[in-house]
Write a protein that binds this DNA or RNA. Structure first.
Length: 599
RNA sequence: GGAGCGGUAGUUAAGUUGGUUAUAACGCCGGCCUGUCACGCCGGAGGCCGCGGGUUCAAGUCCCGUCCGCUCCGCCA
């Protein structure tokens, strides 16, 4: 232990001192952010996680401290004893402690630092590889410290709110039984059971339902989940959910409780007052108007379906798509904004669209009288054109953007174009918090190619009562008692009311063509449990990382996770994953294919 | 599985139709400086141009392969 610390205790953080503290003797600790040596006085900016304080080393005040300060360099870790003095009129407006400075009497160097590979300040554009390799230095940057501090406030507030609402925090296993379907699992070999594997839990889904069966009524957990899928900015192989399940509730009760959580978080963490209830929108409306199941309502541009007129317009390309089971969707860009759409922006959209597997995008400028200025205008019948104008509510000066494709592709692509040009034209209101509940999604999804049916969420999601009769005859038309919470175009949470009646569950399995045998093998323990008086129940899970990203306004998920992984799932700081030794593998009864490395 | 972008001093970037000694800023090192706060001034050091092959009299630059990172589609709730 340092002799300094045995005789001194830190009195203030580096962000705490104000004019009223002038005259006090203080003890500060932190890191040297910068030093400015004027020969006589030496100025040092001392940084800790709370802020920055200017230190003054003046030989007339302490010759000893001034001499010691001469060798200080960036990122040395130091402690000081000094006297707070007002800076009078010479205030530094840029920092919270700018009214004062601390004249140092005693300097203790806890440790020196090599020159860091990049500057420890915000907005320094350093490549990600380096930032991740020296993560502990990147984490010293004020912005990341601010993000992680806010993330801590989010989890603390969540625990307080849910605790107050009667929820119990209960842990569930990470090492679980492998279940096929859904996300790919990470596997863990069992040394004690040669040839057998655990899976790392994709989510605590089944366990939280069992806790409802067990009578715990209200459960939550801030829990790590693991999915071995390809990664994205907003997707890490391990991520954190705020996982919740409630018994004896309807959608309304559950959603209201969750809205209260959001309101509390925004109030206590951001100081923003949300208006409740939050908006509801059906899945069907979202797909129709926005092309996605997570509309960004900060942008007012909307899509419309013009398949009907396009299918008999005389324009072969559109007609063929419609006759082949595809759709034609149209995005109207109002005249005032359309003027700002340059030729090159529109050309760029074609390339953008191609990345979605779309062959092309068509543009038409609406002229006086409703005629179109477009390469295909003369192929398009007047009648069909007028009908498209009517559906799109187009007026002269507007630009119409068309995508004709299979439904899923057309929606995905034009929905993305909507946000792409919305951003370019400044039509996304960046200062808004646009929440909405997405409701009534389909219970099942039909694969475009194989025509196979699969659970859209998981096989325990309830169908809507009014749709139950369609389960056997037309399962693809059944809508679910499921809901997603969407914020600014990001799905921040999703859940459902679960099936708790064995008869209904059997029909759902039948619709999914899951045999009795498979049911037993995959979910036998849950089906058994449901024989013993399961309560009606439902739940939701929020993506904590995504919530934190939005609340901190971080551009990258990496910026709200202390130790994130790269797009290939590696940790550049610890250099993992790595091959392991033959001995370790033997112990686990695991063999690596001969052409891959073993240590 | 697929598409795109990137990799040049410690860092961020520039580097022309291939051409002589690969530039700049910041950082770093030394010196000077009584008030700076992106301190200033003078001087200095610093390069496997991601890696491997090819074309060429000549490659940072062109071609092929490969590795790493990022963004997106597929995948994933």
């Amino acid at each position: 232990m340092s002799a300094f610390l045995s005789t001194h205790t830190r009195s203030h953080s580096a962000g705490a001192l104000r004019a009223a503290d002038a005259g006090k003797t203080v003890v500060l600790t932190g890191w040297v952010k910068t030093y400015r040596d004027h020969g006589q006085a030496i100025f040092v900016d001392l940084r800790d996680r709370e802020g920055i304080t200017q230190l003054v080393f003046d030989p007339s005040f302490s010759k000893e401290a001034h001499e010691a300060a001469g060798v200080l360099r960036n990122e040395w870790c130091v402690g000081i004893v000094g006297e707070v003095r007002s800076r009078g009129g010479n205030v530094n407006q840029k920092i919270a402690t700018g009214e004062v400075e601390v004249w140092v009497k005693t300097l203790e160097v806890f440790s020196k630092s090599d020159t860091p590979p990049f500057a420890i300040e915000d907005d320094v554009d350093t490549n990600d590889t380096l930032r991740l390799k020296y993560r502990y230095l990147d984490l010293r940057r004020p912005k990341l410290q601010k993000n992680l501090i806010m993330r801590s406030q989010i989890t603390r507030t969540t625990r307080a709110y849910l605790g107050g609402a009667g929820f119990l925090e209960i842990e569930t296993p990470f090492m679980v039984k492998y279940t096929p379907g859904g996300a790919r699992n990470f596997l863990v070999p069992s040394r004690l059971n040669p040839g057998n594997f655990y899976a790392l839990a994709e989510s605590p889904q089944i366990f939280k339902q069992l806790l409802m069966v067990a009578g715990y009524e209200r459960y939550f957990q801030i829990v790590r989940c693991f999915r071995d899928e390809d990664l994205r900015n907003e997707r890490q192989p391990e991520f954190t959910q705020i996982d919740i399940e409630m018994s004896f509730v309807t959608e309304e009760i559950l959603q209201t409780t969750m809205e209260g959580l959001m309101q509390t978080l925004w109030r206590e963490v951001l100081g923003v007052e949300l208006t409740l209830p939050l908006r509801r929108m059906t899945f069907a409306e979202a797909m129709d108007k926005y092309g996605v199941d997570k509309p960004d309502l900060r942008c007012d541009l909307i899509l419309c379906d013009v398949s009907a007129p396009s299918g008999k317009s005389g324009f072969k390309i559109f007609e063929n798509v419609v006759n082949g089971g595809g759709i034609v969707k149209c995005l109207r860009v109002p005249a005032a904004s359309a003027e700002k759409l340059s030729r090159s922006t529109l050309d760029g959209l074609t390339d953008f669209a191609k990345s979605f597997g779309v062959k092309g995008v068509a543009f038409a400028r609406v002229q006086e009288g409703g005629a179109w200025q477009a390469p295909f205008a003369k192929s398009f019948s007047d009648e069909a054109r007028n009908e498209v104008n009517r559906i799109a509510q187009a007026v002269p000066g507007d630009t119409l953007i068309f995508v004709a494709e299979k439904p899923k592709v057309a929606n995905t692509c034009l929905g993305a174009i909507r946000l792409n040009i919305g951003d370019k034209l400044g039509l996304i209101r960046k200062n808004e918090w646009q929440f909405m509940w997405l409701t009534d999604p389909p219970l099942f999804e039909v694969d475009d190619d194989t025509k196979e049916i699969a659970a859209a969420h998981h096989p325990f999601t309830s169908p809507r009562v009014e749709d139950e009769h369609l389960l056997d005859s037309a399962p693809e038309k059944v809508l679910a008692r499921a809901y997603d919470l969407v914020l600014n175009g990001v799905e921040v949470g999703g859940g459902s009311i679960r099936i708790h009646q064995p008869g209904l569950q059997a029909r759902a399995f039948k619709a999914l063509r899951i045999s009795d045998e498979d049911q037993r093998a995959k979910f036998g323990f849950l089906l058994d449990a449901f024989k013993f008086g399961p309560p009606p129940h439902g739940g939701i899970a929020f993506g904590l990382d995504r919530l934190a990203m939005l609340m901190t306004q971080a551009e990258f998920m990496r910026d709200v996770i202390a130790f994130p992984k790269t797009q290939k799932g590696s940790d550049l700081m610890t250099e993992c994953p790595t091959p392991v030794s033959k001995k370790q593998l033997d112990e686990l009864f695991v063999q690596v294919k001969a052409d891959l490395p073993v240590k």
